[in-house]
Design a protein around this nucleic acid. Structure first.
Length: 517
RNA sequence: AGCCCAUUAGUCUAUUGGUUAGGACGUCAGAUUUUCAUUCUGGAAAGAGGGGUUCAAUUCCCCUAUGGGCUACCA
């Protein structure tokens, strides 16, 4: 029987998880689910110096937000625990001893200064079979001037001499690297903790990991891992390296402030209460939904003939997922496409989204007394009106689209053309505005727009525009008829009158008229 | 500097030894709309360059260029 597929996502808590890591997690998750396998979360925290507080929590919170559930791992039960490397140090020691016994590793006494010297002395200096016997270590029998007990040392793995390490990556295909071109990597630090290369291999073996899915930056370290597997005579897992995600300047993504004009996009999924993580922007805050973000992350370098319009939910992603359809080249992240996906998602999931917006709006209105209050039915009507105008689900965005339902405009944006037209037809227009007022006072709401449409065509456009400006402050936005249906009569009359009073000059002052013309 | 990897429009990508090189986002134009948004219709836009192999190359091979990764007591 086939072994069950087991994959792991193994972030190190040296900072908050960003979209690169999240993509790796997603691909691991999809591959596991597709093949009925197990998805494991392992925390790789062997580097004490670089640990950042709360980043473990952030990683877990991010996965939760995205609804990527792991079957085994940190903070969860499982046969293969502990799933955090700092609690596995004894295990690593045990396996280290085996390598020491077999003399496949050696103790090395060089400090940083020594290595800098070597690098100056020898071009492209490497610690390997060609050089190691000349340097300060336990293999150099002539020059052991320091005994282990008294001096700091690290443990390096012996790389074989002039051997081609070949492996077949599921995405990149055959990769060949000669051992003369790689270092005798440090597998144990002088503080007696294992480095990534060692802990990672031991854990993957002990946890029965069958497929290693990780970023492309690991390709060149893979031979070291293979050498370790070979020394233990363990079965080598299948390697799958993922292309990197780049920003629009073709750089590896890094911490950046959000700026849509410069095409700088956020790299963190969620906001965090932990200030030390220094997260200034996140997709959660901006208003990208987790479903959209995952959809976009899947499409980075992925294609399928079966995708009609790029929009996939998690179930569909699992169904379609295969590494055969992942491209090799690095990917520039297209933020605008993400926004488009988000927009489509909003459109396709109206009910869910309406709830979200509802809560945001109610909270906003509650806070301030001066805002007009509506009952839930009307709030729902408002949300339906703004729904196809929203790409991002955040309160700022939503408020900008619909604030005029709740308060009078702060200012009026009138262009010169419109001003000219108002001045030219001022008496007529004023007449109609007052007429509208009159209708409203008489509560003849229903007939209003029919009446307006009977007006000479010359004036209709101008009147609509003036109404729009007086009610919402500018010329863009929801159909004014719908706005009239939501606002109450008093409010409408009030706003029109305020507009007339505040723009008296347009209707009366002849000096102003001269200036304009 | 050495090694590894990649290269189809602005971006993500499809297909193919013979195609008008297809799609999506973006962009531009038109229609709808009192306006904006939505929606619809249409347009512009690509095989990095140079050599081979071949009747025929974007596709196969080589070189160059460009981009990226690794060369840490980081992962």
């Amino acid at each position: 029987m086939k072994n069950k597929i087991r994959v792991r996502f193994a972030p190190s808590p040296t900072g908050p998880l960003h979209i690169g890591g999240l993509r790796t997690a997603l691909y691991n998750y999809l591959f596991a689910k597709k093949n009925n396998g197990t998805f494991i979360l392992r925390i790789e925290d062997t580097d004490k110096k670089r640990l950042i507080k709360n980043s473990k929590k952030y990683i877990i919170d991010s996965l939760k937000w995205c609804k990527i559930k792991y079957d085994e791992g940190y903070k969860k039960k499982g046969k293969y625990g502990p799933y955090i490397q700092s609690k596995r140090l004894n295990i690593y020691k045990k396996y280290l001893k085996i390598l020491i016994k077999k003399k496949l590793v050696y103790f090395c006494f060089d400090n940083k200064k020594d290595i800098i010297k070597y690098k100056k002395k020898y071009k492209n200096f490497l610690y390997n079979s060609l050089t190691r016997k000349k340097l300060k270590n336990t293999l150099n029998k002539k020059k052991i001037f320091i005994k282990k007990k008294f001096k700091k040392y690290v443990i390096r793995i012996k790389t074989p001499k002039n051997k081609n390490i070949i492996f077949y990556d599921k995405i990149y295909g055959k990769i060949k690297i000669n051992t003369n071109k790689i270092d005798d990597k440090i597998i144990y630090r002088s503080d007696k903790t294992p480095t990534y290369h060692f802990a990672n291999v031991i854990d993957d073996y002990l946890m029965n990991i069958t497929h290693i899915i990780r970023g492309k930056e690991w390709i060149y370290s893979t031979p070291i891992h293979i050498i370790i597997y070979n020394y233990f005579k363990w079965k080598i897992p299948i390697y799958i390296h993922l292309p990197l995600i780049l920003n629009n300047k073709k750089q590896k993504i890094s911490k950046r402030n959000f700026n849509i004009k410069k095409n700088i996009f956020p790299i963190y999924p969620i906001k965090s209460k932990y200030k030390n993580l220094k997260i200034k922007n996140s997709y959660e805050e901006i208003g990208i939904l987790p479903e959209s973000l995952l959809n976009k992350l899947l499409l980075l370098g992925f294609y399928s003939n079966k995708i009609n319009n790029n929009i996939l939910n998690l179930k569909q992603m699992i169904k379609l997922f295969t590494f055969k359809n992942v491209n090799k080249s690095d990917i520039i992240f297209n933020y605008k496409k993400l926004c488009w996906i988000n927009k489509i998602y909003i459109k396709n999931n109206k009910v869910k989204i309406i709830k979200k917006i509802f809560i945001l709006l109610i909270n906003k209105i509650k806070k301030k007394k001066k805002y007009i209050k509506y009952n839930n039915i009307k709030i729902n009507k408002i949300i339906n009106l703004i729904l196809n105008r929203i790409k991002l689900i955040n309160i700022k965005n939503i408020w900008n689209v619909c604030k005029y339902f709740f308060k009078k405009p702060d200012k009026y944006v009138i262009n010169k053309n419109l001003k000219k037209k108002i001045i030219n037809f001022k008496t007529k227009i004023l007449f109609y505005l007052l007429k509208i007022n009159f209708f409203y006072i008489k509560k003849k709401k229903i007939n209003l727009f029919k009446k307006i449409k009977k007006i000479n065509k010359k004036y209709i456009i101008i009147i609509f525009k003036i109404l729009r400006i007086s009610i919402i402050g500018n010329l863009k936005g929801i159909n004014i008829i719908y706005i009239f249906k939501i606002l109450n009569n008093k409010e409408i009359i009030n706003r029109i009158n305020i507009f007339i009073i505040k723009n008296k000059k347009l209707f009366t002052n002849t000096k102003f008229r001269k200036n304009i013309i």
